[in-house]
């Protein structure tokens, strides 16, 4: 564990809590892509199956259980409890165009051709693009609430911090996982346009609005 990973994990945790608090306080999931949230639940469910096969640390297990359960809770809140507020008309990204190619790629490019390893690879690839339905939805509506912007900034920062963690681990531990690094870079690049808007608008007290 190094400082970049710890802050990265905390940022990821903060993002999930921010999203749940926003939904709970406003009794609404307006502006949130249910498709992205389903993809994140799929990411955690396919990645953390090793909860049953290997033990790393209490921290590791607790975080995994937290991520799986909160992602399921988020999907439940969006599609059941607060379904009336879900903006499905604007959540029209075709997720099969992500899941199918990513599934194929996980079969072809992986560290080891075994079920758990392929599922882990699938989850790494899927996570890198899982935010696309959310970004697509924002570009369709042309706006984002400030709390949604904070959520996305924390979520995007998490993988960017992991890149620094991988640089650190490469130099000091000789650890290097090409699949995670490439996917993590792709994931972070997808957020760059949003990061720019966040820094130039949200941090100056303005909402994110996009030109039509």
């Amino acid at each position: 564990m190094n400082i970049f990973r710890l802050i990265g994990d905390m940022s990821h945790l903060l993002a999930i809590i921010l999203l749940l608090l926003k939904m709970w306080k406003t009794r609404s999931c307006a502006g949130i892509s249910g498709k992205s949230q389903i993809l994140f639940a799929l990411v955690f469910a396919s990645r953390y199956l090793d909860l049953f096969t290997s033990f790393v640390s209490v921290y590791n297990s607790v975080m995994k259980i937290f991520f799986i359960s909160t992602s399921l809770l988020t999907v439940y809140l969006m599609y059941f409890k607060f379904r009336a507020t879900y903006d499905s008309n604007h959540d029209t990204f075709r997720v099969e165009f992500l899941v199918i190619p990513v599934g194929g790629l996980a079969f072809l490019v992986n560290h080891e051709f075994s079920p758990l390893e392929i599922l882990w690879t699938f989850s790494i690839y899927l996570e890198s693009v899982a935010i696309l339905p959310q970004l697509f939805m924002m570009s369709k509506t042309g706006e984002a609430e400030t709390i949604t912007s904070h959520y996305l900034f924390a979520l995007g920062s998490y993988r960017a911090l992991y890149i620094l963690n991988w640089v650190y681990r490469y130099y000091f531990e000789g650890f290097f996982d090409l699949i995670a690094v490439v996917a993590g870079c792709v994931q972070t690049i997808l957020y760059c346009d949003f990061f720019y808007l966040y820094i130039t608008k949200v941090l100056k007290g303005k909402r994110i609005t996009l030109p039509a």
């Binding site: 990821h12 090793d50 963690n165 650890f175 290097f176 995670a180």
Partner: peptide, 10 residues
């Protein structure tokens, strides 16, 4: 490429 069987990252 070195990789851990046991994945310690989240």
């Amino acid at each position: 490429i070195k990789k851990d069987k046991k994945k310690d990252e989240l």
